[in-house]
């Protein structure tokens, strides 16, 4: 009896971990894209995720829009935010100095976080929709419906982006730019415009990520650092240049989180993730430097 319960508990934890892992992959994609392709460490990434959550909240409260629809709305909105950020800030610094870029993006982080507190206060928010507490039960294994929906949206985006980068000419050009920017330029690719596209896409995934996270977790303007750490961990473990590896890393982090939250009190999960990130950065941080150094 005991063994069947703990077995089903384990299976449930595994399924939950994989579902969460898909969501973690989604929130890491943007960070991986900007770092891998443009060499920009976007520390403001998680504030964009947080804005995505508030977009879902506003759309739900004002227009009664389901977060599933908000995820679609987030695409153009956040694409535009990303394009503006790239044009106004990133394009001016990214290529001169990575550390100047970092300072600017810390500034962006501070501005967005401060503005979010001014607008929405530090109160914790929850998205409540009809299926918030619904769950599917199968053989004693319960799966929360919001997690399932969040995971499906995340999976769809991961597949879509992977296909885009692998199979379309634009995707190939983006990968070419990541591998050798100057060689891409002399082949006729307008790398400045392509960078706009990349940053727009990265920001759009952050926005959708925020909508999707809001379906499963409460949020406030300040707890986004957690997602910054989670996303960095996924990127550092998964490496740059392959969405499939990012997916594997995301699933791994999802599993680590659910398994360790069974074994330890929840706050230890933060400790474990931060510690893992410190170790991962020490082990392969510099190896992530990417191919930006390659130039004519």
């Amino acid at each position: 009896m005991l063994t069947t319960i703990s077995l089903s508990l384990l299976v449930q934890a595994l399924i939950n971990g994989l579902l969460l892992g898909l969501v973690y992959t989604l929130i890491s994609l943007g960070l991986s894209l900007t770092l891998g392709i443009m060499g920009v460490v976007n520390v403001a990434h998680s504030t964009l995720i947080m804005l995505g959550s508030y977009l879902a909240l506003e759309l739900l409260q004002r227009l009664g829009l389901d977060p599933i629809i908000s995820a679609v709305v987030a695409v153009p909105v956040f694409f535009l935010i990303g394009v503006l950020l790239e044009r106004l800030l990133i394009s001016r610094v990214a290529r001169t100095s990575q550390t100047t870029g970092l300072l600017v993006l810390f500034g962006v982080l501070v501005v967005i976080e401060g503005a979010a507190i001014l607008r929405w206060t530090t109160d914790t928010q929850v998205l409540t929709v009809s299926y918030t507490n619904a769950s599917l039960t199968l053989d004693g294994i319960a799966i929360a419906v919001p997690r399932l929906i969040a995971a499906v949206i995340a999976l769809a985006l991961v597949v879509l982006l992977d296909t885009f980068l692998r199979s379309t000419l634009y995707g190939k050009a983006i990968r070419a730019m990541a591998q050798n920017r100057d060689a891409a330029r002399i082949s006729g690719i307008d790398t400045d415009r392509l960078s706009l596209l990349v940053f727009g896409l990265a920001t759009a995934t952050a926005g959708i990520g925020g909508v999707v996270l809001a379906m499963i977790f409460p949020f406030d303007p300040q707890d986004h650092y957690r997602w910054l750490a989670w996303a960095f961990l996924v990127v550092v473990i998964g490496g740059l240049g392959s969405i499939r590896n990012t997916l594997l890393a995301g699933l791994l982090i999802g599993l680590i989180e659910t398994v360790s939250s069974i074994l330890f009190p929840f706050q230890y999960v933060y400790f474990i993730v931060y510690l893992l990130l410190v170790v991962a950065l020490l082990v392969r941080g510099q190896g992530l430097a990417g191919s930006q150094s390659r130039a004519l």
């Binding site: 800030l89 610094v93 600017v104 962006v108 501070v110 401060g114 507190i117 001014l118």
Partner: peptide, 18 residues
Amino acid sequence: PPEFDRVVFGVILILVAL
């Protein structure tokens, strides 16, 4: 609210770095 300072500081950080 004190967050107003934060926003201004963030803007200054961006402008000075740039």
